[in-house]
């Protein structure tokens, strides 16, 4: 499978879903897409068939507002009915709400309140060690989210317990709701901060699937400590007018914007035919 092409298809689904439902967190969805594609289509041992297998890999979307990206990947992988998702997302009585919910097949943990996912992932990784299981645990955090103190408690514990079965990603798109991370609350340097807490740190271009893939493989081969991948991403990646604009955190495209976004993505997708 060509993962770059897959990432474009997922981006088109995300924009469709948000446009149809009239809500969603488009900027963070598009920045995290490539990470999800590499994990779900290549690196992680998880599928609709092994969903109850205690040895499956675990994924926690700590930046839960990027749920549309996760739903689109899970639907495409067959965890649930894609049509049902698209028909009901965020609608009256829908089970597909605007944050990950573990009533949905494939979602391991409820998130949406920032600063919970990494602690939960530490717990999952500890359980794997206790039970001598080979599964790996992945968590994705936002860079604005890194201001939550609870993350640093989890980072401390992850290093303390030498959790080399745990890999965290920071979606380092340098934006949050109110502006850039550096204006709102300094987040630099993520690399130095995690390293000071004892983690193996990899810093990569975060919308480059090849780079993501080799980083994840490196993390798998790193013994004795957890790995963080600082994914230097572009918020809104893949749609020119959405890229790098704080206002597109949860703006919904109008009809013209929707058409324009789909056109850009379809043109890029055509190169893979």
């Amino acid at each position: 499978m060509n993962l770059e092409a897959k990432a474009i298809d997922i981006r088109k689904d995300i924009i469709d879903l948000i446009y149809k439902a009239g809500c969603g967190h488009i900027g963070g969805d598009l920045s995290v897409t490539d990470i999800l594609v590499d994990l779900y289509y290549k690196q992680m041992n998880v599928s609709p068939e092994n969903i109850n297998d205690p040895d499956r890999d675990r994924f926690v979307l700590s930046k839960g507002h990027s749920v549309e990206a996760l739903y689109c990947v899970l639907a495409d992988k067959g965890f649930f009915d894609k049509k049902e998702l698209f028909d009901t997302y965020s609608g009256y009585l829908s089970k597909y709400i605007g944050h990950p919910n573990n009533k949905i097949n494939g979602v391991e943990m409820n998130t949406g309140s920032l600063g919970h996912g990494l602690g939960v992932a530490v717990g999952m990784a500890l359980a794997g060690k206790m039970d001598n299981r080979s599964y790996r645990v992945y968590a994705v955090l936002g860079d604005g989210e890194m201001a939550e103190g609870s993350n640093w408690e989890a980072i401390t514990a992850g290093a303390h317990y030498n959790l080399d079965n745990l890999t965290a990603f920071v979606d380092r798109n340098r934006l949050q709701i109110s502006g850039t991370t550096e204006e709102v609350m300094t987040a630099d340097s993520q690399e130095n901060r995690w390293a000071a807490f004892g983690w193996n740190v990899l810093s990569i271009p975060g919308n480059d699937i090849t780079a993501i893939d080799s980083a994840v493989s490196l993390a798998k081969g790193t013994a004795g400590k957890p790995t963080v991948i600082i994914a230097n991403t572009t918020k809104g990646c893949g749609v020119s007018f959405i890229e790098n604009k704080a206002a597109w955190h949860h703006k919904v495209p109008n009809e013209a914007e929707y058409q324009q976004a789909m056109k850009e993505l379809s043109e890029r997708r055509a190169q893979y035919e």
């Binding site: 839960g64 965020s90 709400i97 605007g98 944050h99 409820n110 949406g112």
Partner: peptide
């Protein structure tokens, strides 16, 4: 916050 759910 409606459809954003229980966390919100």
């Amino acid at each position: 916050y409606g459809a954003l759910g229980m966390t919100h």
